[in-house]
Simulated assay, not measured.
Amino acid sequence: MNKCIYLDNAATTFPKPEAVYKKMDLVNRTLAVNAGRGSYKLAREATELIDNTKSKLLELINAKRNAYIAFTPSVTIALNQILQGIKYSNSSVVYVSPFEHNAVARTLNLLKKRHGFKLIELPLQSESLEMDLDKMKYMFSKDNPSCVCVTAVSNVTGYILPVKNIFKEAKKYQAITVLDAAQAMGLIPIDFKELEADFIAFAGHKTMYGPFGIGGVIMNKNATLDEVIVGGTGSDSLNLDMPQPYPGKLESASKNIVAVAGLNAALDEIDIDKSFKYEKELTNYLIDKLDKVLEVKLYLPKDRSKHISIVSFTVDRMSSENVGIILDEDFNIAVRTGYHCAPYIHKYLKDKSSLGTVRVGLGRFNNKSDIDEFIKAVNDIIAG
């Protein structure tokens, strides 16, 4: 069988840059010690690596003097720390975009049950599959937002949400603003100063091309969070309360120094302008090819300039799962199928008859040849 054509980069980018593998191997062999828990040289070097990685992340989003970073094992844990660390009451009004991943949707559903707040879905234009900002403004004026949660890029449709406009309006009501940047950091520009975000959650293993096991919370220095996960920090150990200064208040347990090293190396490889331009070119190439297949239905925002890397589609009279199985078993092409852990958006896509969509997630290591092979496979499947 031919080499696998990997088109599931929205789940995790693969492969990683060679520098990531080399740095992780080196640190695993020479520096895999517990940072912040000892005064010996290796522990200090591990701490310096963590601090350097955080500094690179802050530089990436123009937040050098405006934010703290707390590392977590994943973006899901980061979002839980943010959303569960916010103070709510039964009079709170929380808005969520229809593109949210279950890392946000399920967490807010749990918190709604606990606190009794009002949870409202931000409005979508069903024909364009884009946010309805005018209707949103009216909704905010009627039910003033306490908190607004938005993803930067949809993991189902590839839509780049107008986050700056949404957060600007939310801040007129002093709302807390939360951004899920899992599909965005390292691929699209994020300017922390301009965005008016209180919290950003990120995943190292997606668009930054780092490894699994490292994500985090980026928080505005003027924002506050209650601690959610507590434990050892290596400091003030006789005190049963967590240290109060950020980011230490949010960082219990041993750091995954090997994953941190991989992210550190990945950050050196990031060129947002180059990556965006290349992936946009591939995305347009894929869409143009798929659009010519009569049996294929695409799910895209109307404004193609607000779209990157992720393309969802269905095939007439076939379940998405069956399409994915055939692509895998007969053509060695890896795609994702189903509902993609995104519970809200599918009622707009109306894709229940196909059991969700087939999702192609492009990355920097894909090329037009991959897409040509994929299109040929899709045509072969339809031909029977």
Rank of each mutant, 00 (worst) to 15 (best):
Y6C: 07
A11P: 07
K16I: 12
Y21T: 14
R29T: 10
N34Y: 10
A46D: 11
T53P: 07
R65I: 07
N66L: 13
I69L: 04
S74F: 08
Q84P: 01
I86K: 05
N90D: 11
V96R: 13
S97A: 13
E100F: 00
N109W: 12
R114F: 05
D143Y: 15
P145Y: 08
C147K: 00
V148H: 08
V150G: 04
G158L: 03
Y159F: 09
E169V: 03
Q174G: 02
A181L: 01
D191G: 00
L195D: 01
A197Q: 08
A197W: 08
N220Y: 00
N220G: 02
L225A: 03
I229E: 04
V230K: 11
G231M: 07
N239P: 05
N239D: 15
L250H: 08
A259P: 10
L263E: 09
A266P: 11
E269G: 01
S275I: 03
K280C: 03
K292M: 07
D303E: 10
R304K: 13
H307E: 03
I308T: 14
V315K: 05
M318T: 02
E321Y: 07
V323L: 06
G324A: 09
I326C: 02
N332D: 14
A334Q: 15
K347L: 06
D351F: 00
R359K: 06
V360Q: 04
F365S: 10
N366L: 09
N367I: 08
D370Q: 05
D370S: 06
I371Q: 10
